[in-house]
């Protein structure tokens, strides 16, 4: 099992999150919700997909049709 740590959040927020979890079946616990949110938040976006040269080529194709 993954090594885990404990974090603290405001009780009122926890209670609201718990209510939300109970109303929505997709998360089994507040812990799971928080883990999911944090994972999403810290995960890198797909990153730089194009090099500057590739991006310029794409723009050139769009310019050719008056798109940009």
């Amino acid at each position: 099992m993954e090594d885990r740590v404990t974090i603290s959040i405001p009780r009122a927020l926890y209670e609201r999150a718990e209510k939300w979890v109970n109303e929505n079946e997709d998360f089994s616990s507040v812990e799971e919700l928080v883990t999911f949110l944090l994972r999403e938040f810290v995960s890198e976006e797909s990153g730089e997909v194009y090099s500057p040269e590739e991006e310029e080529e794409i723009k050139e194709r769009l310019r050719r049709l008056g798109y940009i």
Binding site: E56, K59, E60, R63, R64, G66, I68
Partner: peptide, 10 residues
């Protein structure tokens, strides 16, 4: 021709 992008190759 247009001065807007389209016909102007970079």
């Amino acid at each position: 021709k247009s001065v807007g992008g389209m016909t102007w190759r970079e």
